[in-house]
Each structure stands twice: as C-alpha cells, then as structure tokens.
C-alpha cells in the first residue's frame, strides 16, 4: 500500500491498495505515469484508505480479495474499477468469473469503463475522499 496525492486536488492524500487483477491495472499505472497521482510521504492520517480492485475477479481469487479488504485498517472504502469487477463485464457468462466484486466485499464506488480512463480513477478517488 502506498500513499498518493491527487495532482489536481493537493489537499487529498489517499492510502491506495491497488489490487491489480487484470488489464485495468494498467490504467492505474497510467494515472501514476502521467502524474495524475503522485507518491506522497507517509505522514499522518490520510483523507481516505481505498482498496482499488481493478480487473477480473475469479471465484478462485475471491478469498484473496476478501483477505486484502479485511487487512486494510478502518476507515476504508473499496472501489470497483472497470466492467469486470463491477459485474463480470465481458465475462458475464463465464463459469469461473465472479459477477461483481460486490459479492465478496462492500463496494463504495463503481467506476464504469473497459478499461476506465485514468481520469475516471482520479474523479472516483476525489469523490470517495470527499464522502469519507
């Protein structure tokens, strides 16, 4: 888990645990690479602790997602990033894919997209930090 600041909203510092399960994780990296999210020093309470589940969650991996969520200290929020973790997305008819990570953990923000833009990640983080 790392601490990030949102470049456009300097007041917001978020602890982000990125659970990159598939290709949506690349968009998380893109947000870092383009400087939309910047690494910040780990001092004091963050505005929010966010578990970002980005990518396809399979039934085999679901317990690991739950473990990652339970390991995160409160107060915390979970973000479902992309169609696969929202509803199963293109794998809606697959036998092995969890049809939405909200079957496993409580989700506070569903970000649509396949994949969502890095900007959509920033918008959702700002919204979560404002409601936390």
């Amino acid at each position: 888990m790392s601490v990030y600041a949102v470049a456009d909203a300097p007041g917001i510092r978020v602890h982000v645990a990125d659970l990159g399960m598939a290709c949506c994780a690349v968009e998380f990296a893109a947000a870092l690479g383009r400087g939309l999210l910047v690494e910040a020093p780990d001092d004091g309470e963050p505005s929010a602790r966010v578990l970002v589940v980005s990518g396809t969650v399979t039934d085999v991996l679901a317990p690991s997602v739950l473990a990652a969520w339970e390991a995160l200290p409160a107060p915390k929020a979970a973000m479902s990033f992309g169609a696969c973790s929202n509803t199963g997305g293109p794998y809606w008819d697959s036998y092995s894919v969890t049809k939405g990570v909200d079957q496993v953990i409580p989700v506070h923000s569903y970000v649509p997209g396949c994949p969502p833009r890095p900007e959509a990640l920033i918008d959702a983080i700002v919204e979560l930090a404002a409601s936390a």
């Binding site: 989700v107 569903y110 900007e119 409601s131």
Partner: peptide, 8 residues
Amino acid sequence: HDYPASEP
C-alpha cells in the same frame, strides 16, 4: 467519463 456510482 465522470459518472461513478455508489450503489450496485
């Protein structure tokens, strides 16, 4: 692109 939802 800014239309995240808070409930299923």
